[in-house]
């Protein structure tokens, strides 16, 4: 995107939706950790940032499409959102009775999610940022080695129909963030940066990031297999896909003085 577009975009967005921008975010203190696919040499360092406490809701998103009609379901460009975009919504400017206002918005494409965040002067989290925050349980910043943490996530992966639950109905984690696990999947900025080809067994012997990841799903490293499913899910996505179990939340960089 060239500078001109960027500027207009920021201008276009800057009027809207700034009300919630700060108050529903919590600070995440940066740190270094080894993601699923990693070995020691692939440790990832995260800078401090702010993250939305809750996923974006249907009500939030309704405000957005009212301000930006080009993101209404009948007007959106197919290039940016497939035919399932807001598929459950009754109208362009109303979601109808079948959809809870305070449930996470789903059936939104990556383009739409990205634009929504930009319009709040925020952005989508990276995979590494999202995973960093999501490895916390109630008490611990990195709970990935706890059986209870993993079991809870897996229980959710196996439980049908959780997308219509209200935000805040799962646990508040160490950072004060809700619903990272238990309601919906969430878009990330670079969701397709980890290569899963769809042939997961083949991924073992190609030189991809997941080389060690798939090899690590062994008895010694059960903590990874919940995360592995998330990476597989992300790998099946394209940026215009709009999926019933997939929502998003935004983050914001902390500007250090």
């Amino acid at each position: 995107m060239d500078l001109y577009l960027k500027t207009t975009l920021i201008l276009a967005c800057s009027l809207a939706l700034r009300v919630h921008a700060q108050k529903d975010m919590v600070p995440i203190e940066g740190g270094t950790y080894i993601p699923l696919y990693g070995v020691d040499s692939t440790a990832v360092t995260i800078q401090d940032f702010l993250m939305d406490v809750y996923p974006v809701t249907n009500a939030d998103y309704l405000q957005f499409v009212k301000k930006f009609p080009e993101w209404q379901k009948s007007r959106v460009k197919r290039l940016f959102a497939d035919g399932n975009y807001l598929v459950g919504w009754e109208k362009d400017d109303a979601f109808g009775d079948g959809i809870a206002p305070d449930a996470p918005v789903t059936n939104v494409s990556w383009f739409a999610a990205k634009k929504y965040c930009e319009c709040q002067n925020k952005r989508l989290p990276t995979v590494d940022e999202w995973e960093y925050v999501a490895m916390a349980d109630e008490e611990t910043a990195d709970a990935r080695k706890k059986a209870s943490y993993n079991q809870r996530i897996l229980d959710w992966y196996e439980a049908p129909r959780s997308f219509d639950k209200k935000i805040g109905s799962t646990f508040k984690n160490y950072w004060g963030v809700y619903d990272l696990h238990g309601l919906v999947w969430e878009w990330t900025l670079d969701f397709n940066s980890v290569l899963i080809s769809g042939e997961s067994r083949k991924d073992v012997d190609i030189d991809s990031n997941l080389f060690c990841g798939s090899a690590a799903v062994g008895a010694s490293d059960l903590m990874n297999y919940a995360a592995f499913m998330r990476y597989a899910f992300r790998g099946s996505m394209k940026a215009n896909y709009s999926i019933k179990n997939l929502g998003f939340r935004c983050v914001k960089d902390v500007i250090k003085i």
């Binding site: 399932n84 992966y157 196996e158 049908p160 999947w185 080809s197 769809g198 042939e199 997961s200 067994r201 083949k202 499913m229 597989a232 899910f233 790998g235 099946s236 996505m237 394209k238 896909y241 709009s242 999926i243 019933k244 179990n245 997939l246």
Partner: peptide, 27 residues
Amino acid sequence: NKLPHNIDLHAVTGPGGGAESSFVAPG
């Protein structure tokens, strides 16, 4: 559905038995 899936048919002659070409997201 929550998860992506695919299918490997042992009757297929081809890489992955179809798995790679059939990797499909929910919806």
